[in-house]
Simulated scan of single mutants.
Amino acid sequence: MNPRRKKRLTIVSSIVAGVAIVAGLTLYALSQNIDLFFTPSEIVNGKEDTGMKPVVGQRIRVGGLVVAGTVERDSESLHVEFKLIDTGPMITVTYDGILPDLFREGQGIVAQGILTTPTTLQASEVLAKHDEEYMPKEIAEAVGKNHKKPTYNKN
């Protein structure tokens, strides 16, 4: 191999190695920001198809129904704690902030945050559904026929 080809090969292989390192670091950084969706049952029991359970400290999204009678508000701050359920076990969600206007007991919500214990989520964001008929596909499949619409007294 002549010196000129050897130099080109070295340059090309250096560029390929550099691009591979940059791509690897980028994928590693992005993996830290992926929000996986779980239902309360999947957090406790793991996903049905893979058995994957979220680990403490992982950033996730969880969707379910707010259990009636479990919403506890701190009178001196914006701290709220409530329980979520789909068809199985419940999990506790804690949130420091202003809840959406549509948030209420029996309502379907999606909370995004960090799992602090195996059954507690420290939410950074809470989203409520917009109308009585809409429910995210994953929640609708998990809740299935066990879901009953909440009845409200309209005074």
Score class of each variant (00 low, 15 high):
Ser41Glu: 14
Gly88His: 03
His79Trp: 12
Thr116Met: 03
Thr117His: 12
Leu99Ser: 02
Leu78Met: 10
Gly46Ile: 03
Val110Met: 08
Ile60Gly: 07
Ser41Pro: 07
Phe38Cys: 10
Gly108Lys: 11
Thr94Cys: 02
Glu76Leu: 09
Arg61Asp: 15
Thr70Arg: 01
Val80Tyr: 13
His79Arg: 15
Val71Trp: 04
Gln107Ala: 08
Thr94Phe: 00
Asp49Pro: 01
Leu115Ser: 01
Val56Thr: 11
Glu72Pro: 00
Gly64Ala: 10
Thr92Trp: 09
Phe103Tyr: 03
Asp49Arg: 14
Leu78Lys: 10
Lys53Pro: 05
Leu115Tyr: 11
Thr94Ser: 10
Leu36Val: 09
Ile114Leu: 10
Arg73Pro: 07
Phe38Ser: 06
Val56Gln: 07
Leu121Tyr: 08
Val56Phe: 02
Arg61Tyr: 10
Gln122Trp: 13
Pro40His: 04
His79Met: 13
Val56Ala: 06
Ile109Gly: 02
Ala123Ser: 05
Gly57Pro: 08
Thr116Val: 13
Thr92Cys: 02
Leu65Ile: 15
Gly106Cys: 01
Glu72Asp: 14
Val56Trp: 07
Thr120Ala: 03
Gly57Ile: 14
Gly69Ile: 09
Phe37Arg: 13
Pro89Asp: 15
Ser124Met: 03
Phe82Ala: 03
Asp74Thr: 13
Ala123Phe: 04
Gly108Tyr: 09
Thr39Tyr: 04
Phe103Pro: 02
Gly51Asn: 02
Val93Gln: 01
Phe38Gly: 05
Glu42Cys: 09
Gln58Phe: 11
Ser124Val: 13
Asp49Leu: 12
Ala123Met: 06
Asp101Lys: 00
Val44Met: 09
Thr39Lys: 03
Lys53Arg: 14
Val56Ile: 12
Arg59Asn: 11
